[in-house]
């Protein structure tokens, strides 16, 4: 159990670090609207994926004065909240040697696997996806 907790924490911290680096890279060196993408889906199909625009949304949350109208994907707010909360929670868990984040993660996983919740989530993501395609992100 402890090894699976540490494995999950390790991966989440790693991906959070990559996320922060990516956001800072976008803020410092490129324009969010430059069209540069790492998304394999978009490169191959030339269509936006459900999470297209998340980086732009996070950038516009950091610099609201520049582009308040550019909250392009509502999932960006969710990702920004996760990037703020998850690393802190994980680090506190590791420091005091608890597994509250891991337990909560398992609970949320079970909740999302319930058919009504799963179907609603799929519909919501499909809606965001269609919206992204219509907006032409």
């Amino acid at each position: 159990m402890t090894s699976s907790r540490n494995k999950l924490y390790g991966w989440l911290l790693f991906f959070s670090a990559i996320g922060y680096l990516w956001v800072f890279y976008n803020l410092l060196f490129t324009h969010a609207d430059s069209g540069a993408t790492l998304c394999l889906f978009k490169t191959i199909t030339h269509l936006p994926c459900p999470s297209c625009g998340v980086t732009r949304t996070i950038c516009s949350l950091i610099h609201p004065e520049e582009s308040i109208s550019k909250i392009v994907n509502p999932l960006g707010i969710l990702v920004a909240a996760m990037m703020l909360i998850f690393p802190l929670w994980i680090l506190i868990d590791l420091l005091i040697n608890k597994k509250s984040f891991y337990n909560q993660y398992i609970n949320i996983e079970r909740f999302l696997q319930k058919p009504p919740v799963a179907i609603s989530s799929i519909l919501l993501i499909t809606f965001v996806w269609i919206w992204n395609i219509v907006k032409g992100l």
């Binding site: 991966w11 990559i18 790492l38 394999l40 998340v54 999932l75």
Partner: peptide, 16 residues
């Protein structure tokens, strides 16, 4: 499921 959601909303972890 948890990691699936993470992968979905980050565009496959930026492709990485």
């Amino acid at each position: 499921t948890g990691l699936g959601v993470g992968k979905l909303i980050t565009c496959g972890g930026l492709g990485v």
